[in-house]
Computed example of a mutant assay.
Amino acid sequence: MFTVYAISSIERSYIYVGLTSNLESRLFRHNSGYEKTTRPYRPFSLIYQKEFLTRLQAREHEKYLKTSSGKRSLANISK
């Protein structure tokens, strides 16, 4: 199983979209500062997750969420 997820910075206006096979571990890495891209925006809360059977399906959905319409839908969730 592969999970597409979105996390929102609690203190700043920032949403990160990613893909993983181990969501719990990935969230820990983001919130602990192990990921260079998200380190300045910690701490995070999980605002979206969706599971897929294949990595290809998950990657397609991740790419959609990174488009302007996907970002708008995530911004509405995080409000």
Rank of each mutant, 00 (worst) to 15 (best):
I7C: 10
L19W: 00
R39Q: 12
R59M: 08
K63I: 08
A6R: 00
L74I: 09
N76V: 08
N31M: 09
I10T: 15
Y64M: 06
L74T: 08
R55T: 01
F28H: 15
A6G: 14
L56I: 03
R26H: 12
S78M: 08
I77N: 10
E35P: 00
G33C: 14
Q49M: 06
Q57W: 00
L65K: 01
T54R: 05
E35I: 15
S32M: 12
T38W: 03
L53P: 00
Q49F: 03
R26A: 13
N22D: 15
R29M: 12
T38Q: 09
L27T: 10
E35M: 11
R42D: 01
K79L: 06
T20L: 09
S21P: 00
S8F: 02
E51Y: 01
E11L: 14
Y34R: 15
S21I: 07
F2C: 05
R42L: 09
L23W: 06
H30D: 08
S45H: 03
T67D: 06
S25Y: 08
P43M: 10
V17G: 05
F44W: 02
P43D: 05
E35H: 10
A75G: 05
E24A: 15
T67L: 05
S32H: 14
E35D: 14
S73N: 12
H61D: 11
S69R: 07
A58I: 00
E35Y: 09
F52Q: 06
T54D: 02
T54V: 02
N31V: 02
K63L: 08
S13H: 09
L23R: 12
I10S: 11
A58Q: 02
R26V: 08
R29A: 15
K50E: 10
A58P: 05
V17S: 06
K50T: 02
Y5N: 08
F52S: 07
S9Q: 09
R42I: 13
M1K: 10
R42T: 13
V4N: 01
